[in-house]
Design a binder for these strands. Structure first.
Lengths: 257, 257
DNA sequence: ACTCGGTGTCTCGCATACGAGACGGCGTAC
DNA sequence: GTACGCCGTCTCGTATGCGAGACACCGAGT
């Protein structure tokens, strides 16, 4: 929480951010100006970054750009499974508060992949396991993610406009799916009842990365008959909150970008 | 060149490097110890990194891992086209010294993609243009790259063991290709004569990233009849030098990783 | 030749960023 | 309960990292 202050560290990150935001390498003078760093300090800093491969120095064009080390470090991000890690305690809390099994899922192609779950104590073994893949359009978690893509993106995703069904319910084609997604988008969360498994209901909300794209979604699953009307609304609020909290945990603490 | 010294900047990079090198988030105490940073300074630093999303703080497990900003920044690396940028002046110098057209190429699947070129002044318009794709096994640039993959990797790359030919020369199958690649590996550079275009010869050397993998390759092209024996050897030395210099320009200046 | 504007290097004195250390909280062992 | 270990926060005096500024270089313009 406490806003610490470490000048050179901040400058380091500022420089990297600047270089990342320009698609072409920039001269040192621009770095100094844009980041508000004195000339000589800028060179001190660039040299350190250069030494370690975080920036490249293109002597011919007197310009500085990002280096491989930045790339390598960035690639390591995914290996730490940040979604699962940040999500796990939040899923646990969600299950705690609703009593239901909670899921974390991501989109892969037109499927959702369940990447984490917290079991309900009262009604275990409902549907999915970690690692399971289901058609996105049939699941609440899937629709929650799709609802934050543009219709054009959704259409591009579905090469064939006819959609599979499992229970005789659910959208038959991309057009129907888009209708449903629009409703999800305005409502803020997705509800699915009986399109995955008869008698089972899911509520899910998207986790929006600070780039504006849906990175994942959080959902809960319960026996449809056991939860109606207001009870579902209350649960939905908690699901949305959890999704937003997860989004918050993943982005930067402050809003500069 | 001059080894500048900016303590907090170096620490920042040390921390990021540490987090990237561990596949799991680590406690602050480990960061402090491994990077040799005093306890309180470590927190100062982690807070700054956290504020900007460069690291995530997983409170539940009291551990710190890389954040999305690291990922986003790393992704921007490729946008700056570092190979072309660092390569261009080196290609120009190579053409200057050999008189031949010089190319920079990368591997995409089983093809090579030519991403930059410097035209010979004496014998222009020999073969390829930027953006052209050719089967890797027929070109010197391709073989140079493949020669630095393991035989297993090469086999995995080629789903079908039968290879296309263009001029009635060149390896007929993966087995023959592997034989040729072994020769290339020991020689240090690849030579191709007449497998791409009759009468044309290419010499190429791989650009080895500091992760040990071939990132690209540098090659020259000339009319086969105009350059024999010693002349080719001399040119090959220059090609290898250029490739190594390019590798050097892309990696970190110092050897710690 | 001479200036001008832009790079990149290097030094050294002084403002200030850092770190010792104290504090509070939380979990775990016994 | 009590003691211990580890985590994260905060303060304040002082060792030291940083930045003004001088220097060298280079290419372009006149």
């Amino acid at each position: 929480m406490s806003s610490s202050f470490v000048k050179s560290a901040e400058r380091t990150l500022d420089v990297l951010h600047l270089l990342a935001s320009r698609l072409r390498p920039v001269p040192a003078s621009v770095v100094a100006q844009e980041c508000g760093i004195p000339r000589s300090s800028t060179y001190h800093l660039l040299n350190v970054l250069h030494e370690r491969g975080w920036v490249n120095h293109y002597e011919a064009e007197h310009a500085w750009g990002l280096g491989v080390t930045a790339f390598e470090t960035g690639s390591a991000y995914l290996r730490s499974e940040p979604l699962q890690r940040a999500g796990r305690p939040l899923l646990a809390a969600l299950t705690e508060h609703t009593g239901d099994t909670a899921h974390l899922a991501i989109l892969e192609g037109t499927d959702v992949l369940y990447i984490d779950k917290e079991e309900s104590r009262t009604a275990p073994r409902l549907v999915t396991e970690i690692g399971v893949r289901l058609p996105a359009h049939l699941t609440a978690v899937g629709r929650a993610i799709l609802s934050r893509l543009s219709p054009a993106q959704v259409r591009a995703l579905y090469a064939r406009p006819v959609l599979v069904r499992r229970t005789g319910r659910g959208p038959r084609n991309v057009h129907e799916l888009l209708g449903e997604l629009a409703a999800v988008a305005t409502r803020g969360y997705a509800v699915e009842e009986g399109t995955t498994t008869v008698g089972i209901c899911c509520i899910a909300a998207p986790v929006i990365g600070h780039d504006g794209l849906p990175a994942a979604s959080v959902g809960i699953t319960f026996v449809a008959a056991q939860r109606q009307g207001d009870q579902r609304d209350d649960a939905a609020v908690k699901v949305v909150e959890t999704a937003n909290r997860l989004a918050g945990a993943l982005g930067p603490r402050r809003l500069t970008g």
